[in-house]
Amino acid sequence: MVTLEIDGQEIEVEEGTTVLKGAQKLGIYIPTLCYEETIKPYGACRLCVVETIVNDRSMFQSSCSLSVAEGMIVKTNSKPVVKGRKILLELYLSRCPEVKRVRELCDQYGVTETRFTTFDKSEDCVLCGLCVRVCEELVGARAIDFVGRGTERKVDVPFERVWDECVACGACTYVCPTGHIQNEAHRVAQLKRQLGIQRKCRYMLMGAVSNKLCPNNYECWRCEYEQRTEYRLGEHAVLALKPAQRQGG
């Protein structure tokens, strides 16, 4: 057992627990974006940063990945910590200004505007890596991973096409704090909302045809619906909806 002090309260916890868990035991709130109890800590969002004082020296460390030490003094809400979090939140706000979770956290800390430039207003991925880690650690499928680096970093499937590794369990969509990760079915629904349920078949002159059913199995030369859906989904919308048909063809 290790004794440490968090925000002036002494607590005794088992060796190897993280500071974040200790604080939660005491009922102290520490904001997090990339933390999930069942997954290994990652320390990507840096929102859970706390000030630790060891040998009269203060350091800033992410509490989700910091294990407790004997005689450690932790401050979770000191002035420099809050200042750091505010700057972080400004950065998050500039990256994804329309994400609900980020907005909530900004409201908590009184951050209303950001000094940094917003490049894409519709961006809603904070690159917390929760989906990637869930897929790897809990599901074991490892269907998605980070792609690219720097400003072009994003979560994606390899070569932007559908793979058999993905078992469509939906764990990534469940765990995503911002709602960026969505199932293919959702995208098909979105597409339908944009294009309508019926469309005109121009090339084979079959009149108005339902999007779901095509008598020719969308195989006409120059079928524009086929091209458009393939361009957006990487695979045919209908085939994505009907896995049995995909296996057959």
Binding site: A141, R142, A143, I144, D145, F146, V147, V157, P158, F159, W163, E165
Partner: peptide, 8 residues
Amino acid sequence: TPMSRLYS
């Protein structure tokens, strides 16, 4: 090795 890792 998963393809996602290689692609990453």
